Amino acid sequence: MNYENFVKKIHGEFEMLAERKGLSGRVVIRDIVKNNNVHLKSISVVNDENRATPTIYLESYYEEFCQGKDISDIANEIFEMYIMNSCGLNFSMEDFMNYSYIKNKIAYKVINYDMNREMLKTVPHLHILDLAIVYNIVIEEDAYNSATAMIKKEHLDMWQVSKKEIEEVALTNTPELMPPVIMRMEDLLAEMIINDISMQWDDEDEQEQWDFVKEDCAYGGHPKEKVSEYVREEIEKMKYDDKIDMYVLTNEKRINGAGTMFYDGLLKKFADKIEKDLIIIPSSVHEVILIPKDNEISDEEINEMIGEVNENELETVEILSNHMYLYCRRDDRIYM
């Protein structure tokens, strides 16, 4: 079954589940243009109350189908995901039209300028370096349910506000809505491994409530704190080069965190602390990597590495840029 037929089949299965479960609204399939001009198919429900509803993207589910998963099981999984993510979203069209209500929810993110030229024709933005700063309404009700809506030029007309006002509001809001985090690369890797171990254990043995990691995990039978210690020790041993310190700059949500490099005074404070200029590696739209500037590694080597990662490791939608930047603390400025 090709992808188009898969989408049609999921649409039909979802409609039957919605009717059986008493879900009101019209099930729709949309072609969504994401970052870097990536087109994705999604399924959602248009409801009578004009309230925000989750958008579920279907590409990963098609991969599961191609690997042999039953399409009815996939439809049930999508439906359950939809219901779970619907619970916390209390945002209506009336809310969206009310600028006073959404003003404090406006934040910015950064994307690649050239890869999004077509989209940027309809979106208020600020062109900086080879990037564009664009603006979202951040809708979040709890730790598990969140969504964003990109602000377009037509919305400024509806609210009767200027692009300059949106820029100023976002500049103030974003660090508060998405506080910055700077951490050593080793600590981030350790955090990811520990979270993965914890999630595996939590799924298999929920009643233990995190007292011990299951015995079939890497350091079986030890308290979680001890496992964390072991993981961090192993990561330190694996460090590629003791002469190169690498730091990850993102936000607390770990989503669209690359924009933190434009937070007022943040890079200046960090660069002054380590007393060096900074190489900025745009590892994805979600984070950047900071390396103290010295002569140990050339710009050409870094740019080659960025290109390889973008081509072989990242999804197209996550690519930020193909080259490094330099932060000069004397000028308090980022250069290409």
Rank of each mutant, 00 (worst) to 15 (best):
M1Y: 14
N2W: 10
N5V: 12
V7Q: 12
F14L: 13
E15I: 14
A18F: 07
K21Y: 14
G22P: 04
G25K: 12
V27S: 10
V28D: 14
D31L: 13
V33W: 10
N35E: 11
L40N: 11
V45W: 07
T53D: 03
Y57K: 12
Y57H: 12
E63L: 15
F65S: 13
C66M: 14
Q67V: 08
G68E: 14
I71M: 13
I74S: 07
N76P: 02
N76D: 15
M81P: 09
Y82F: 15
F91V: 07
S92F: 04
D95W: 01
I106S: 05
A107S: 06
Y108L: 02
M119D: 13
P124E: 03
A132E: 03
A132H: 04
I133L: 05
V134E: 03
Y135T: 00
D142S: 05
D142N: 11
D142F: 02
N145A: 03
N145R: 03
I151K: 01
K153L: 02
S162K: 00
S162L: 03
K163C: 09
E165I: 01
E168G: 02
E168M: 07
L171A: 06
V181G: 03
I182K: 10
L188S: 10
A190C: 03
D196L: 07
S198A: 15
E206C: 15
Q207N: 12
V213Q: 05
D216G: 06
D216R: 10
G220N: 04
K224L: 13
S228A: 14
Y230F: 10
K237D: 04
D241H: 06
D245A: 08
N251L: 00
L266A: 09
L267T: 00
L267K: 07
K268E: 14
K268F: 09
K269V: 07
A271M: 06
D272P: 02
K273E: 14
V285R: 02
E287C: 05
D294K: 12
E296T: 15
I297K: 08
S298I: 11
E300Y: 14
M305Q: 13
G307H: 13
E313M: 14
E313S: 14
L314M: 09
N322K: 09
M324E: 12
M324F: 08
L326W: 02
L326I: 10
L326V: 10
Y327P: 06
D331F: 03
